[in-house]
Design a protein around this nucleic acid. Structure first.
Lengths: 195, 195, 195, 195
DNA sequence: GATGAATGAGCTTTCATTCAT
DNA sequence: GATGAATGAAAGCTCATTCAT
């Protein structure tokens, strides 16, 4: 009946199990047990184990993209947009710790075992940064000599590595906001002491 | 013994195979075939499949650390040290593409399936950046308000994400040197247009 | 009830599906779809998958027996009776090709997977030949030295193997009537050249 | 070491298990247990379950063909050749009861589940009869109006159905020789009483 | 030390059957 | 009576690891 009910239960269970065990060590029966359904039920909603992972990617990243875009749309200042993106990205890591773990680990290796899968949603997410940088350059706020392809990757990578730390270590010396602000600050003004 | 011919042959074969298939999809027999030894021979040199991966990590990252430290020791300017680290990191990605792939992908998920494994070598590598930043702060070249734990992760993450791009996409718009320089430049001086 | 609409629809669907896929490769859901009923509905009319096959055997062979007996009853000459049986048997193969396939293939292996099932209807069918031969012997038309158990099997086997050919190969060099007549002719007068 | 050893053990075990349970009900583990090897060992010698069956067909029918051809080659009289074929065929059924069961049942349905498999060995076996009939016609011993395609099928079918009886029922009223002779006799001289 | 045949535990997936609606 | 979502047992096959040679 409420089809989406089971679909969602399985996705959420998969996030939990995959975060703990990783894709290859996770058993379908683990996910089924976590979702409180029979093993076979999973195959009524997904074609196979990979399909769970891919669907999980698409849907969850999709939600994040929508959210981030909404928040950014209200702004006009690229600097603030970057701040919002950064804060939002790291925040998400804490609020959805398990999802974040899955995305960080499994997303990265997904092209290793799913040759044909082109992760367009992920690219769409990163390109949000791309757009902000372009905008900043147009508005003469960001340097014109920035290589857009490099800058977006650098910014995203910085945030992402920071997030990994946040996920893996249990005790933190700084708040999320501090970390996000620091990274944005570095990217905007550099690490060099103004003399 | 530890520099035994077979030991090295197996490690190098493992790098090749793991880069192509990933840890879980790689078969011991694949590695054995690539190394031109019998399956059983691998167990004369390694305890199990995980042990190959861990040994590979330790030894190969160890080599890189030695190399990078040597290059940096000669310098005194933290800015140039960062440049060297950046260039060296990205260069390594191209020169040892397969090793880079293994490190990027398998290293990240290793704690998922090897619960007890603490990746000290990797931390040692990142801490090279840490030291440089500290040095820069002491010399009043870098801002004092930099959170060292955050800055090092940000810098490493930026480089690493850039490298992933380099590994995964076949055609590149910029040279390695350009990319490395750009990242260092951003981290030193920021993305903001000087007015 | 037993002539219920659904009962018949399922049997006919089963014949079609089993002919194409064989008992073990056929899915209950295949039969249900073909019969345009829900999977569960099948279990309102049959106890289980085997029961469909057995019921199918009994009912369809039953129909054939009634038909053949009707045709033969009108005759008195055992030779012509054999001719009728032969023609009817092979004809049935063409007219009900799918049923014929199921009977030829599944019937033969049925005792393999349904240990307790004694296929009495099938024996009843073959015994029609038995009766004809007996009659011929009584009337001094057939040789007395015929071993009835052997002769009936030989005759039925000859027809049946011929039919298999008819079912499996698409192009035929001879008409059904030719084939049936030839077999009857051989059984009546032998293959030896009269000198 | 003695590779053929295990190969043969598995084939012989498969014959036994398949004869009792049929292909679909037979488990790989049943065959493995019967062959006294591990489940996995079977996959060192065969690609999959189907491959066991096909190899079994090819090898065992191949042996029979060689044997029958040897026996027939010594003869020149087509009548006696037919006798030899008949006797040999039915004899084989008794001596290798389990193999016979597998061939009778699984061979017939094999094209149902192995679409691509063309059973050339089986055709080669039946064509031995074909050749004998041709020879008999050339020598003016057999009637010229025999349709070779029909006659060979009829003869083989008669023998085969007879054999099935022999395999399935435990008590027999006639000896093998009697049955074989009777069938040859019918095919040579017909069932009709000579007046 | 080196080999590779043998092992067997373990996992994904299928599908006959059930039962709440 | 009819449905079809849900169940969960069961089996083919893989592959890390062992060990006799």
């Amino acid at each position: 009946m409420r089809t989406s009910d089971k679909h969602q239960k399985i996705i959420q269970a998969a996030i939990k199990v995959l975060a703990n065990k990783g894709f290859f060590n996770a058993r379908i029966s683990d996910i089924a047990k976590e979702a409180q359904v029979a093993d076979g039920t999973i195959y009524l909603y997904f074609n196979n184990k990979y399909d769970i992972l891919i669907t999980l990617f698409e849907e969850e990243i999709g939600k994040i993209i929508v959210l981030v875009k909404q928040l950014i749309e209200k702004e006009t200042d690229p600097k603030i947009m970057l701040e919002i993106f950064a804060l939002q990205h790291i925040k998400m890591m804490e609020e959805k710790k398990e999802l974040a773990e899955v995305l960080q680990v499994e997303l990265r290796q997904s092209n290793k075992f799913m040759k044909e899968y082109r992760n367009t949603k992920f690219i769409e997410y990163i390109d949000i940064v791309s757009h902000i940088i372009h905008l900043g350059q147009e508005k003469n706020i960001f340097r014109k000599d920035l290589l857009p392809g490099v800058a977006k990757r650098a910014f995203f990578g910085a945030l992402d590595e920071m997030s990994r730390l946040w996920i893996l270590s249990s005790s933190h010396r700084y708040t999320i906001e501090q970390s996000a602000n620091q990274i944005v600050d570095i990217f905007l003004y550099g690490m060099t002491e103004k003399t």
